[in-house]
Simulated assay, not measured.
Amino acid sequence: MLFALPSDDTLYDALLARDPAWDGRAWVAVGSTGVFCRLTCPARKPRRENCTFHASIAACLEAGFRPCKRCHPLAGGTDPATADLLAALEADPGRRWTEACVAARGWDPSTIRRAFRRQFGMTFLTMARLRRLGRGAAELAEGGAVIAAQQAAGFESASGFRCAFARYLGVAPGTLARDGLLQADWIETALGAMVAVASRTHLHLLEFADRPALPNELRRLRAEAKGSLGLGRLPPVDAVAAELDAFLAGRGAGFATPLEPAGTPFQRQVWAALRAIPPGHTRSYSEIAAAIGRPAATRAVARANGANRIAVVIPCHRVIGADGSLTGYGGGLWRKRRLIEAERAYR
């Protein structure tokens, strides 16, 4: 599976041994060189502290690493169109791609959409856009000016960057508080980029960066904080990033980061019931309604489930239809399916 990886120590041993069993199942990103490789790469092996391991090529690309020229991790195992566009994206990660650009390279945009969704769970244009935004967000989180963030994200104009950033974060970069009570940052995961918002003590939001509801959720958070929302990484984000990494790699299902999900008393009651579902198990909406003593409130439970803004940690993905169908999920049904599959190891 995409993220059922063993410990980093085990993968590092496989890297040293050039174990072919892991070829195409895991990749190593080397912080000292900025490249990512197959575990069978013939190049000199990096030091352990410089290595991070990823379960997909997309995760390596989104984290800002470029493919190794010795082992060519993009070659093989992918169709020519996907390999061509991934290589083009790595060659120019700041480029603003459109479907016309894809067509100009000789590929049918609708075929490319299906191919990337099938392999990565997102379209090529979404992947390219998230990489640009991620670079810009990183620049701002480090205290850079808006123009520097715009350049890092590869946008031709500051207004273009502000519009794109507003679409994902719900606000223009220039209006973000430098020392906000709440700070937003990006987390790279095996399921794609996530946006996390925290105070110094609690996590307030954790959402997939391509979730359509994210801008509205961030606008509400900013209003709740009376405009005091900035960019940066506070301790709860570091904590949940480590927990997510362990969870998706199969090393542990526990989340201890303090949460502040807001919501009405009823919503908080539903979310508490979601956290009581053991990893590797699922419940229907009606079962959740019965568990909180409101058996007739199935629809209200479904609405509360959809209003959850702390994904994975408050596991709304564990709620399915009474007939066993996956039903809706804000992060995409493909993510819900993979989360449920991954959690079988925790039963």
Rank of each mutant, 00 (worst) to 15 (best):
T123F: 02
L125C: 04
M127P: 09
R129E: 13
R129D: 13
R129Q: 11
R132I: 03
L133H: 06
G136W: 05
A137M: 09
E139C: 10
L140K: 14
G144Q: 08
G144R: 07
A145V: 02
A149S: 08
A149H: 12
Q150Y: 01
S157V: 00
S157W: 03
S159H: 04
G160R: 11
R162A: 14
A164Y: 07
F165A: 04
R167I: 01
R167D: 13
R167N: 08
Y168Q: 10
L169R: 05
L169G: 01
V171D: 06
V171Q: 15
V171S: 11
P173Q: 11
L176R: 12
R178C: 04
D179W: 12
D179P: 01
D179Y: 13
G180V: 04
G180S: 02
T189D: 01
L191M: 07
A193P: 06
V195P: 02
A196P: 03
A198N: 15
T201S: 07
L203F: 15
L205I: 03
E207G: 03
D210V: 06
D210M: 09
P212D: 08
L214K: 08
N216F: 00
N216I: 00
E217S: 13
R219G: 00
L221P: 00
R222G: 01
K226F: 13
G227F: 07
L229K: 05
G230R: 02
G230W: 01
